[in-house]
Design a binder for these strands. Structure first.
Lengths: 211, 211
DNA sequence: ATTTCAATACCAACCAGTTGGTATGTTTGT
DNA sequence: ACAAACATACCAACTGGTTGGTATTGAAAT
């Protein structure tokens, strides 16, 4: 496939940049072509429609973030629960710089398109759910270590639901950051999340008090 | 001013309905006029621009929700902390029916327009922040009852930050609901929030264990 | 090694429909 | 009479998408 993918990837990169800043609908095909430095012909050669580009961008985003988090330092923590806290701390550390840089493409897009473009919505859901799924095993392991059922029969909450809650807090934090014009409140919200999980596992094992 | 406001309010109602379902950018002025049953002339008589309509819609939303929550039954609970839990339970009970019915206009809009339309963004921020501000006094009172400083000097978190975190969880829950196509996960996330606050205040007053 | 061939990648110009917005009315209440 | 509330008709700019075409490729045929 030669050097193919050049234009395609430039368009995808442009989509991630522009959609995060302006939203999907407000980002026009021409905007994307200018940002990517390609012509409209090239755009519609690689993507059947703007909707298809949206779905492809969500998938690309999913792969990019998966690789980004797979290489993140929090994986070096041996203890599952410690790794979870390191993950949250890592997410908090990212909340710096411009809003459009730490914000989630999938969360931004799905709000706009969930009704009008179910295809894009599904891709966004996959991105968020797949990322949450990378946290569930550590949560489940931490629960098991403390004699809790990961399916929630002893606690009322499952490892999966806590993993998704983690993402809900982050997505909500992004909204507040956009509303307030800065990441400060987002950081505080992530700190609340960290405190919640600490309490959750501190109560579960009262023999070891909080450090 | 006679029966004035008829068209204006019909347009605002249309905006709240359509923007929640389709987003701000994807909702056209013509869409709004058709939904409201008015002509374009009437639209631009009442609103200087689509942007002005967006800001007015956010303000209208803020007033509507303020009135809605002011009359909600959770205010009948005497205890401040109990009232907070009743509020969260109330928010959870609302998560029924169609997505566009329980979703927050301000949170939906601010994601799209925070960069391109700061005027609308500011109105959305006011809506969210003002609503959070109605919770802070109860949280502060509950903290004081337990000897905690509402500014966070004893706990590391302030009443205001917890109030905003509450909204972050709700906003994030809405995103997950849209992504997953149903409110189930949103409910679970709100339950996590409730559990967090219970733990927060249970630990603070260990003499009274959870009910 | 060169030619052939089909596929892929890409481009400039164009199109029909839609966009937010306006100019110019007409109606209605006081 | 007068102003506010609304309606009709219209527009320039832009929208996503298409057209017909060229440039570049890799593999097969010669």
């Amino acid at each position: 496939m030669t050097r193919t993918g050049t234009a395609r990837e430039k368009i995808l990169a442009a989509a991630i940049k522009l959609v995060r800043a302006k939203g999907f609908t407000a980002t026009t095909v021409d905007d994307l072509c200018v940002e990517a430095g390609v012509t409209k012909g090239a755009f519609f050669h690689h993507f059947a429609s703007k909707e298809a580009l949206g779905a492809a961008a969500a998938e690309h985003w999913s792969k990019m973030t998966a690789a980004f988090f797979a290489e993140a330092p929090y994986h070096q923590v041996a203890d599952p629960l410690g790794r979870l806290f390191a993950y949250i701390q890592f997410r908090r550390d990212i909340l710096r710089g411009e809003l459009a840089e730490f914000t989630c493409l999938a969360g931004t897009m799905v709000q706009e398109v969930y009704a009008a473009h179910p295809v894009i919505g599904a891709a966004c859901n996959a991105s968020i759910s797949d990322h949450a799924a990378t946290l569930a095993p550590d949560i489940a392991a931490a629960m098991c270590e403390r004699g809790l059922d990961p399916d929630g029969s002893t606690t009322g909450w499952s490892a999966e639901s806590l993993a998704l809650h983690t993402q809900a807090v982050l997505q909500g934090a992004f909204i507040l950051a956009k509303a307030k014009g800065g990441p400060t409140i987002a950081e505080e919200s992530v700190e609340h999340l960290s405190r919640y999980i600490r309490l959750l596992f501190t109560v579960a094992e009262p023999s070891r008090s909080a450090p």
